[in-house]
């Protein structure tokens, strides 16, 4: 669908309705997952049954959009079949690619479904040309989703060194840790992003009024304390307010989200193939607004026009944004 040199817009869908919304709003590709622990957004009420997935793939293909199925958790020891079935079903449903993170599962998919296009998930945190070459050489992967720890210059250097496609996050939730290598959630709650597909799981979240303040906890650990009436962000562990030495505040990251819209031209120049919008857990209102805005931006870029100013501020966590590691000073 994308002409050579232009960027592919990869959009999230947590439900079939959001999926249709994304396609109609101009997504070149939609990524989504089955409704179980095989994908890294295994949230209550979210994701696709087998029937919904097959229907959605049909819908996308009729509208000229691609479907990328995320099977990007790390299979539990002794339960590998749940994950291989997800890969088998994705292949059987004519998904355009599967997004994988686990070595064993990549090995299985490459061996069992040689025609299936494989993408390396951000959960694999392949952060340099050698790591990427390892996946390309061993499994014939065609694209890697880069972890959110790299600067634009580093991304450009990687693209000079490798001969597969790169996809980078452009908007949405910001992971401050190397993805797929973080156990903060399982330390606090027993639910793991890697094993259960749940980061800061809602099942362990609690909001409580305490002395005029609203305190949000996860796994019993206080993450935010705000005056009643102030914005109360979701208690994501790495964006909590803590104390470390003399420091009081957001030790790891403020409750901000990523908005790298202004860096689209630089990312294109850095040789990136696809831009990814985070937010499979968000509503279709979010999907529609974000996808439409970014599609407009990409069309403008392709036509050589200036990129229109975004109207996305209200959709961002805490209503503040950062361009994250893409700017080196973030570190």
């Amino acid at each position: 669908m994308t002409s050579p040199g232009s960027l592919e817009l990869v959009c999230p869908a947590g439900t079939p309705a959001a999926f249709r919304t994304a396609v109609e709003a101009g997504a070149h590709a939609v990524y989504c997952g089955f409704n179980d622990e095989t994908n890294a957004r295994n949230f209550p009420g979210l994701n696709f049954s087998r029937v919904e997935m097959a229907d959605s793939i049909g819908f996308a293909h009729r509208h000229g959009a691609k479907v990328l199925i995320a099977v990007n958790t790390f299979p539990r020891a002794g339960a590998f079949e749940l994950w291989t079935r997800a890969v088998d079903d994705a292949a059987g449903m004519q998904a355009d690619a599967v997004i994988l993170a686990d070595l064993g599962l990549l090995d299985y998919a490459a061996t069992t479904h040689p025609a299936l296009r494989l993408h390396v998930s951000v959960q694999a945190a392949a952060a340099n040309a050698d790591a990427i070459a390892f996946y390309a050489r061993n499994f014939g992967v065609r694209r890697v989703v880069l972890p959110r720890v790299l600067s634009v210059q580093e991304i450009a250097a990687i693209n000079r060194d490798i001969d597969i496609e790169t996809e980078v996050f452009i908007f949405g939730g910001l992971c401050v840790m190397a993805e797929g290598r973080c156990s903060l959630s399982s330390y606090a709650t027993g639910k793991s992003p890697n094993m259960n597909g749940a980061c800061s799981p809602a099942s362990h979240v609690e909001y409580r009024e305490e002395g005029g303040d609203l305190v949000s906890r996860i796994g019993g650990f206080a993450i935010h304390r705000v005056k009643a009436g102030q914005a109360a962000p979701y208690p994501t562990l790495c964006k909590g307010s803590f104390e470390a030495g003399e420091y009081r505040g957001h030790v790891f990251e403020d409750p901000v989200s990523l908005d790298a819209a202004s860096l689209i031209p630089q990312l294109a120049a850095a040789g990136v193939t696809a831009l990814k919008i985070e937010g499979r857990q968000r509503s279709r209102a979010y999907t529609q607004t974000v996808v439409r805005n970014f599609r407009r931006a990409l069309d403008a870029l392709a036509a050589g026009r200036p990129i229109p100013a975004g109207e996305l501020r209200a959709l961002t966590e805490g209503q503040r944004t950062t361009s994250g590691a893409y700017n080196k000073t973030w570190r």
Binding site: A178, E246, V251, F252, A325, R331
Partner: peptide
């Protein structure tokens, strides 16, 4: 136990320094 690794240095951050 190591729980996470990042591109960002938190020691530098809480001391008001850059990596």
């Amino acid at each position: 136990m190591p729980l996470a690794i990042s591109g960002r240095c938190y020691h530098a951050r809480v001391h008001g320094l850059s990596k």
